[in-house]
Amino acid sequence: MNRILLIRRDNIGDLICTTPLISNLRSHYPNAEIDILVNSYNYQAVEHNPDINHVYVYTKGKHRDAGQSLLGVYWQRIKLTLTLRRKHYDLAILASGAFSRHALKLAKSAKPKAILSPAPNGEEIDDITISVPEPKQPLHEVEKTLLLLQPLGISAQTHPLTLHPDPHEQAVLRAQLYEQPWHQHVPTIGIHISSRKPSQRWSEQHFSELIQQLHQQYQVQILLFWAPGDENNPLHPGDDQKAARIMAQLNQLPILPMPTTTLRQLIAGISLCDQFICSDGGAMHIAAGLGKPLVCFFGDSCAEQWHPWGVPHVLLQPDSRDVADISVMEVLRAYQQVLHLPPPHSPANALG
Rank of each mutant, 00 (worst) to 15 (best):
D300G: 03
P138C: 03
P342F: 08
L104H: 04
L250S: 02
N42D: 12
P318W: 08
G13L: 08
V328E: 09
F207I: 09
N232S: 13
S194E: 03
V314N: 11
P138R: 06
P312H: 12
P342L: 04
L80A: 04
N11T: 12
Q219R: 11
S271I: 01
T145M: 15
Q305I: 13
E209P: 02
N349P: 00
G61R: 14
Y29Q: 10
Y58T: 12
L163V: 04
L148M: 04
P318K: 13
P234S: 12
Y89R: 08
P318N: 09
Q212C: 04
W226G: 01
D325F: 11
L256G: 00
R85W: 07
N2D: 12
S69D: 09
S203R: 12
E209S: 15
R333C: 06
I154E: 05
H307M: 09
T158K: 15
V73I: 10
V328H: 11
Y335K: 07
L84E: 11
S203M: 05
L332M: 15
L224V: 00
G299M: 05
L5R: 11
G72S: 15
I246K: 01
A171M: 13
G282A: 08
A175F: 06
L147Q: 13
V331Q: 12
E330D: 15
R201H: 00
A156W: 05
P257T: 01
